[in-house]
Amino acid sequence: MLEVKGVSVAYNGKLVLKDINFRLEKGDFLAILGANGAGKSTLIKLLSGVVKPLSGSACFEGVDLLSLPPRERAKIVAVVPQEVNFIFPFSVEEVVAMGRYPYGGRGRKEVEWAITKLALEDLRNRSLSSLSGGEFKRVIIAKALAQTPKILLLDEPISHLDLKYQALLFKLLRELLDRGLIIISVFHELNIAFQGINKIMFLKDGEMLSFGSLHENLTLNILRKTFDVDIVKCESCGNIYLKNE
């Protein structure tokens, strides 16, 4: 169980997350929604130790993630960032194996497992710099899985992925959730976000507007409030669209 209590974060004296409280059980898949600058990425950075909170805690099974040393935290929390770049021609296999860093490099089996799960077998000896955007994304997802985390943080996980690999990813995430992984993800594309998630959080200007199960909390009102736009729902398919002027 992950319990975040009273977390506030400030950048240069300005509060960017204000008193965030929520609780996730094993197997929960949380989508964080909010406009640009609402604090979504900051929440990911907080849980992965990049930014320090002014106050509050994030306890996983009784351990405060926010005060763990980096190596110990990386055994529990893995991150797939939205944009990262890398220099020098490491191979795909070497990069996925970097996920075993917190364990001193041990764990060949986990590396192979992650490579298979993201269908990277044929790319394993390719240099990272030779990959397409989608292939690169799959490699960094595999790297995060090789970390065998208990909590997986995703920032825009499907950007660059074509439909085939979006489907592969969601199927894989389903499998991991069934095994008790907690997933927290930032999405920009709303309709995609609603696939497979069971919890949802709305952020606006660093404040949590609502948090809870997808069905109870997803209303047109809260979407309008979060994004300051007029939104309509397609009655037959359930998809959400911007209202035509």
């Binding site: 130790g49 990049v50 980096p70 990386a74 055994k75 960032p81 990262v84 770049n85 970097m98 860093y101």
Partner: peptide
């Protein structure tokens, strides 16, 4: 040596991957 490999991801992601940057 291992820290240096991971540091190639930049400070932020290296920290997320467990390096005491």
């Amino acid at each position: 040596a291992d820290d240096l490999n991971i540091m190639l991801w930049g400070d932020e992601h290296a920290l997320q991957m467990g390096v005491d940057v």
